[in-house]
Structures are given as structure tokens and as C-alpha cells.
Design a protein around this nucleic acid. Structure first.
Lengths: 162, 162
DNA sequence: GTCAGTGCAAACTTTTTGCAACTAC
DNA sequence: GTAGTTGCAAAAAGTTTGCACTGAC
């Protein structure tokens, strides 16, 4: 599915969501949805705000972005991450499944894919819960930080032996 | 392992961590570690602060809690979650593996366990990354919200037919 | 004695809220 | 016309920072 097709589809889904839930179909809301589906990867509210101002497609306030993104999350068109201290968002429709590997020490986040892992999660049965998506955050030490720690330990042991 | 044994062990691990990294062994730090390992489940900084004030064991400032918890995370004795807008923490040493099921609509978080899922994650091979722990957040609709949405949809379709 | 660590308050950042103006229905 | 939505600014909530004081080494 190409980008424009995805945009058309999510617009349809959002329109239906708004109708069913008695919300108005404002131009701001569709401009926000369109902009989000132009972004690859993660973004935060401020980035989205600046991007929309920059593109001059449609000027919206931060408050409206916060309001609208809640609707999009409920409509299952956007998912929310919370790495670090600002909320990160990403489109969720027609997006490849991926997991996040986070260094507990330096905070670097990298994406990875793993078919076995994916099917294990997707085959998990839930009762009284209708699965829509999931986020797996794997924490550990990246190679760089692990080396740094080993150096520290070595230095300390060396001192102790003196 | 009983609670006191766990506390003793983590105290030893933390002491070693402080030594290796050239940090001081202050009474505040050990009081914080001890309090955290008395808490079952999640907590946020404010809850921890109030708990320590209440217990009158050791009065520490919020700033010290923030400072210390970063050390504990680096020492891999505490893990950080970010549901909602406040950071949540939990002890990580000798804690049962569990996953989190989150309702995308009402935000309710429940823990669950699944052996197949756990082994799939733990058997995933990483190169250049030393796994320490992971968090799996499964999002979806809880039974309650799903029912609510179906009612809304029905109401809407009913209206449309008129 | 020295300097890392602490407490306090102020600053900063992100998100939420109140209210008047606007507009989709 | 009317109620939901928007923009703006103020407020709230969580976290970080600066600085003087304290205490671990």
C-alpha cells in the first residue's frame, strides 16, 4: 500500500470514528492526521507543532494537537511511547511491527525485528481483552556502555590490589 | 528468598556499584534502597517521598530521590516505567517476570504472566547488546470499554437507519 | 580538609485547563 | 442557533538545576 492509499484509508477510519463518537469533522483534525501520516518514525508534540507551522498547511495550537492525538489514539491510528521525559508518538496503521532496544545507561533507542518474538506475542491468548497492539522495550547495555563499565571495574580492582 | 535476604543482597550489590563508580555510601541512599524494596508493585517519586516522610525512618528531599533512583536504575536494581504522565518505578531484583496489559481507552494497567511469551523473549539473541530486562506493554480494549464502544456504534447505526 | 552529596527553592518543560471566539452540524 | 472545538494564556504537574551547607572519605 502506498503512502497516499494509507492516508486515504486512515482518513476514512478517522471519519467513521468521529461520526460514531459524536465528534465534529474539523479541518484541523484532518490536517493533523495527514501530517502525522507523513512522518516516518517517532515524533513528539513539539516536533509535530513546528512541522505544521513550517509547512504552513494548517496552523493549529498545541492544545489542539494534544486534544486530537487523544482521539487518534482512541481510534487506534496512533500509538504513544514514553521514552525519556517527553511523550513520543508514531502512526500505527500499516506500520511494520518492530520492537525497541534501549540502553539502560545511555538511553539510546534502536528498533529491531524478530519474527519468532512477534508470533509469540501475537499468539498469546487473552480473555476479556481485545488486543490492538503492543510495545516491547528491551533494556540492557549497549556494547559501548558495557565496555565503559568494564574499564571502570578494572580500574577499581587495580586500585584495590595496590 | 525472603524479603530480608533480598534487602541484604541488593544492599551488597548497591554498595559494590557505589564503590566501583566512585560514589559515596550515604545513609540517604541506603534508606531509599531499603524503602523501595519494602514496596510491592509500582510507585512514583511522590509516593516514595510521602512514604519515607510518613515512616520517619529517614527524611530525604525529592531531589535526592531523583538522584538516587538514577543510580539504582544504573545498578539494575530498579526499573522505570512510563505509563501515563508520571514515571513509575519498581524493584527489579528477585521480582517475578510479568507483563503489562493496558486499556488504550481507560488507561487501566493490569499485570499478567505467560510462560511461552517469557521464554520467547528471553531466548531472543542480541548481538552487541547485553540484555538485562524487558517490559512488554500490551494495548487493547478491556471488556468494559469494548462493551461501551459497541453500544455507541449501535446507537449510531440506529440513528442512521431512521 | 576536600569535594561529592544533600535540602531547599527557583527554574524549566511538558501537559492540562479556563474562557472567549468560532464554526460544524 | 447551539453546543463542540479552537486558540491563547495561565496554571498545574513533574523533573531538573543552582547554591549554600553538610558530612563521607
Amino acid at each position: 500500500m502506498d503512502k497516499q492509499q494509507v492516508k486515504d484509508t486512515v482518513k476514512k477510519i478517522f471519519t467513521e470514528y468521529l461520526k460514531v463518537n459524536g465528534h465534529r469533522k474539523t479541518p484541523e483534525r484532518f490536517a493533523i492526521l495527514d501530517t502525522i501520516y507523513s512522518i516516518d518514525g517517532h515524533f513528539d508534540i513539539d516536533t509535530l507543532y513546528l512541522l505544521m507551522v513550517e509547512q504552513e498547511k494548517f496552523r493549529v495550537s498545541r492544545a489542539t494537537l494534544y486534544n486530537t492525538i487523544i482521539l487518534l489514539i482512541n481510534a487506534q491510528l496512533v500509538i504513544k511511547h514514553q521514552f525519556g521525559n517527553t511523550s513520543q508518538y508514531e502512526k500505527s496503521y500499516n506500520r511494520d511491527t518492530h520492537h525497541h532496544r534501549i540502553c539502560a545507561q545511555c538511553g539510546t533507542v534502536t528498533e529491531f525485528q524478530d519474527a519468532a518474538l512477534q508470533s509469540a506475542i501475537e499468539n498469546t491468548k487473552f480473555t476479556g481483552f481485545h488486543l490492538s497492539h503492543y510495545t516491547l522495550y528491551v533494556y540492557g547495555l549497549c556494547a559501548k556502555c558495557e565496555r565503559a563499565n568494564k574499564r571502570k571495574l578494572k580500574k577499581y580492582n587495580h586500585k584495590k590490589e595496590k
